[in-house]
């Protein structure tokens, strides 16, 4: 095998795959959040899973995926539930309710994380917040003959699997519950009257969101995951008026942001003559922002330029 190709497969392919799979999961869920006008809920959940992750980590003492998933999902559900409680019973405006809950959860997470760090537990706060795609690598077999075998699959990093599972879960969810999601997002009152449990759909969405966030925290970090949730969906919102196209476009935009972000971050500085590479997750967020900005200006019907031209509001 060629050494550059090997290097690509070993160093670049796994983080790229992990980022792409989490991008798919996030983009689809994010589309529904944006359409349901709950974008900030994505923000809130992604902050709130932190204490769940840390506590699960402290309890089990391992970085294995399953307990962390459970911990994060529990924390995510708790926060979604508490936001509902605060909003309904506290008579607090929804965004304020989110602000209260997610910042409290997040503070709890930071405090427990610092405590864990004080006890020399290997849990880097920066990794959770900004993601460390760079640490995902792979030692595949060095020649093509042995490359295509089952044992190769076993050596793929767990993060890639985790985000792939999240992506397939989300896709499956949307395919199976397409019409239920549609009606509960569009017209909750009719959804209720027809006997579909919109609360159940909402909670399932929150569980999946927590799963997607956890699957992504290793790759893009728990804060920058918001960029993947919201930006591609908002970009797609500006480009289309069909739900199916919307979902596909947001996935495409997310993947484009991921790959361009990865390439710019990993190779861009070298092309410019610097030795140091820059943070990949941050670059992915920036790229998704660039796409959104481009769409806001130049989208065919809803962009600023098109609106100016047709004089439409």
């Amino acid at each position: 095998m060629d050494s550059t190709i090997y290097q690509f497969i070993a160093l670049d392919l796994p983080p790229l795959l992990a980022a792409l799979f989490s991008a798919i999961a996030c983009a689809i869920l994010g589309s529904y959040l944006v359409l349901r006008r709950q974008s900030l809920l994505g923000d809130a959940i992604s902050h709130s899973v932190l204490p769940g992750i840390v506590v699960a980590f402290l309890v089990t003492g391992s970085r294995s995926t399953i307990p962390i998933f459970i911990g994060a999902a529990v924390a995510g559900i708790c926060s979604a539930f508490l936001i509902e409680v605060v909003r309904k019973f506290g008579n607090v405006d929804e965004s304020a309710a989110m602000g209260v809950i997610f910042s409290t959860f997040f503070a709890l997470g930071i405090l427990t994380m610092e405590q864990a760090a004080a006890r020399n537990v290997d849990l880097d706060p920066d990794c959770l917040l900004h993601g460390q795609l760079e640490t995902i690598f792979w030692y595949p077999p060095n020649d093509w003959a042995t490359f295509f075998s089952w044992s190769t699959l076993g050596s793929v990093p767990a993060e890639v699997y985790a985000s792939a599972i999240a992506a397939f879960l989300v896709i499956g969810f949307v395919v199976v519950l397409w019409k239920e999601l549609l009606i509960s997002s569009f017209d909750p009152a009719l959804c209720h009257a027809l006997g579909f449990r919109s609360d159940l759909i909402h909670h399932t969405l929150m569980v999946l969101l927590a799963c997607a966030v956890v699957a992504s925290f290793k790759t893009v970090g728990s804060i920058l995951v918001i960029a993947l949730l919201v930006c591609p969906a908002a970009t797609a919102r500006l480009c289309t008026d069909r739900l199916g196209v919307h979902l596909i476009l947001s996935v495409v935009f997310a993947c484009v942001a991921c790959s361009t972000g990865y390439i710019t971050a990993a190779f861009g500085p070298q092309w410019l003559g610097y030795e140091q590479s820059v943070n990949v997750a941050g670059m992915i967020a920036v790229m998704s922002g660039v796409l959104l900005g481009g769409a806001a200006c130049f989208a065919p019907r809803y962009g600023i330029v098109a609106r100016r031209r047709t004089g439409r509001r």
Binding site: K179, F186, D187, A189, L190
Partner: peptide, 26 residues
Amino acid sequence: YVPQRESVDWDFPVSAIDVVCMGRYG
């Protein structure tokens, strides 16, 4: 049930036929 027109987001990406199909969901 026909809710008030303002109760839903008319900017939602669905077509008229999709909305009518929702009546069949039950």
